[in-house]
Computed example of a mutant assay.
Amino acid sequence: MEEWAKLLDAVAAILSAIAWPLSFLTIALLFKEVLQTAISRIPSMLDRVKTASVAGIKLELDRVVAEEKEDKSGKVTPVQKESAARIAVEKQDLGSQPLLAELKRLCSEFDTLRNTLPSGDVRTRAMTRIVVQMRSLAPSLIEFLDTYKESNSAGRRLAAIAMMQMVPACADVDWLESRFTSDPPFLFYHAALALQNAMDDPYSNESRQSIIEAARRALEKVKSFNGVPDASTIEVLEALIDSSPQILSKHQ
């Protein structure tokens, strides 16, 4: 009797072990078509999620412009930093390509505006809206900085400047100084802001003395231009130079 009991226990254990796999197999056979349809829809569902996330990036770029519409200085603000942080979180799911596509669009839009609109307040405001949006994307795409620095497109060089404005530790002082020789006033104004941010940043890779010297040379170039020099750029560079003794003493 004891042996029969052991045999029955063994049979019960075997049946228990195969019951769930058999049940799953039975369900799979019965609902084969339904399961195939559901599985085939998974990629499209993921695509829709990704599309929704990309749309969210565009909404975020529109939001930051709307919130900064009263800002006349064009400087980096806390709102822009918060927007960049939100997009950096989205990048973890989206990857770089959708963000690069948005930045490419902004670069092209900048080049078109600059080439089609006459110089004046309307064009400056439109270009400022673009650089504000570039800044939201910039920290997430900082690994592409060198590619944008080397571009022949003014819009792409502006994107490189925006990256340096948002991540001052990556500022290339020599390259920024060269903007005052080869680029239009809108770009060298933002190059001046990037120099200012690098001067203020405690983690800057550039020596503060080299930043000050670059700012002095840039100021000389701006003041030597024919016609009326860009007052906003002069203001930024002079403020940077005037504050240099305090900044240098702080970091000694």
Rank of each mutant, 00 (worst) to 15 (best):
A5T: 11
F144T: 02
A218E: 04
E150R: 09
V131T: 05
T77H: 07
M127V: 04
S108W: 03
I161F: 00
N115V: 07
E206W: 06
R129Q: 14
E33F: 09
R125Q: 11
M164W: 00
P245Y: 07
L195A: 02
I27W: 13
G74M: 04
V49Q: 08
K104F: 10
A19R: 12
L46P: 08
V89K: 13
I18Q: 07
D47G: 08
V167N: 05
A126S: 04
L94D: 03
P168E: 05
D242K: 15
Q165H: 03
L25Q: 13
S178A: 12
I39L: 11
L237S: 03
I130C: 01
S243M: 08
A192M: 00
I42R: 07
V167I: 06
D172P: 04
F31Y: 12
S136H: 00
F110D: 01
K6Q: 11
L219H: 05
V122Q: 12
A159H: 03
V76E: 01
S40K: 09
L100D: 04
K6M: 13
Q196G: 09
K75H: 08
L158F: 03
R123P: 04
L193C: 09
L94F: 05
A162E: 01
E70Q: 12
G120C: 10
L22M: 14
D121V: 14
Y189P: 06
A159K: 00
S83Q: 10
E206G: 07
Q246D: 15
P118Q: 08
I57V: 15
G120I: 11
L248A: 14
N197G: 12
L141S: 00
V167Y: 01
S44Q: 14
D201G: 08
E68K: 01
C170H: 07
S243K: 11
L137E: 00
F110H: 09
D121L: 15
A218R: 03
E177V: 02
R208P: 08
G155R: 05
V122M: 09
L103V: 03
P229S: 05
E82K: 13
M164G: 01
A17T: 09
D200Y: 05
A198K: 01
N226H: 12
V173I: 15
T112C: 08
D183T: 10
F110K: 00
Y203M: 14
W175V: 02
K250L: 14
D121T: 13
E177C: 06
E177K: 09
D47Q: 10
K75P: 02
G227P: 06
W4F: 15
E90F: 15
T37P: 06
K50D: 10
L99V: 03
Q97E: 14
F144D: 05
